[in-house]
């Protein structure tokens, strides 16, 4: 078990995503026993004490769903080739969500601080060194300086990436959005007035024939409606929206008022 523990620690260090499946109950003739395990990473079995190939395939399939939903769950599985059933607990070890903040202005400062409290891995990007620097962002995991749209090209974007476009002007946000809108980011939010955003989306439709469902993925104007007034409040409203997208929920008051 020490190898498995080591493997789990390693996964956490690397910020990788994985699923640990554990048999918690099984019919007697099923050929598996409670406590048997299997660790899945990148769609492959990394370690484990389950040897039945057909059962492993069923586990791999379910693990994929669990990882996508980011939700641990107890799942009853038929043991292939037998009439037996096994209860399998799928423990999801999610990759920490990555937040890319494009634009290092006055909203970005509280946004990055709060995002670190929320355990995001945070990258700040701006084309101005006097804004994108360690003094302003002591908590950021990564600070990048360079042409924003160009730099975004080189950043790996996965389904656990959240991108916030809050540059100093729409002429910067829009090329950045073009760069990422077709990617697999879990969340894309863009700041701006309704009028400018409408115009931007219209250009997307006209010039580039961007599909409507792609445009609909963009959260713009960015954030939840909590009548924000200060940069700190705007930062909170943006982060609350990323959590809503990640976890689900209505963003209504739980009291119903």
């Amino acid at each position: 078990m020490i190898d498995l523990a080591q493997e789990l620690i390693q996964i956490k260090r690397e910020g990788a995503a994985a699923v640990l499946a554990t048999i918690t109950g099984a019919d007697e003739n099923g050929g598996v026993e409670p406590g048997q395990k299997c660790l899945i990473r990148d769609g492959k079995i990394k370690a484990g004490s389950i040897h039945d190939g057909a059962l492993l395939r069923a586990i791999l399939k379910e693990a994929d769903t669990r990882l996508r939903e980011e939700r641990s769950k107890l799942v009853p599985l038929e043991i292939p080739g037998t009439k037996g059933r096994a209860e399998v607990f799928f423990e999801v070890l999610p990759s920490p969500p990555k937040l890319i903040v494009v634009g290092a202005g006055h909203i970005a400062v509280p946004l990055v601080k709060m995002a670190k409290i929320l355990n995001y891995h945070v990258t700040v990007l701006d084309d101005r060194l006097q804004f994108a620097n360690r003094e302003r962002f002591p908590d950021a995991d990564e600070i990048l300086v360079g042409d924003m749209a160009e730099t975004l090209k080189g950043i790996p974007i996965t389904p656990s990436t959240y991108i916030v476009l809050i540059t100093r002007g729409h002429q910067y946000d829009e090329p950045c959005l073009r760069e990422i809108v077709h990617g697999s980011a879990k969340y894309i939010g863009m700041i701006g007035s309704r009028r400018r955003i409408k115009a931007c989306f219209q250009r997307f439709r006209d010039e580039e024939k961007v599909a409507e469902e792609v445009i609909q993925r963009v959260h713009a104007p960015i954030g939840l409606d909590i009548k924000t007034e200060t940069p700190e409040e705007i930062a909170l409203s943006i982060l609350a929206e990323t959590i809503k997208v990640r976890r689900g929920g209505t963003a209504q008051s739980l009291s119903g008022r």
């Binding site: 078990m1 020490i2 498995l4 523990a5 493997e7 554990t22 409670p34 395990k37 004490s49």
Partner: peptide, 13 residues
Amino acid sequence: FIDPWWKEKEGGT
């Protein structure tokens, strides 16, 4: 679910 872990138990790698 309560699962015992010890060094020599088969974890498999």
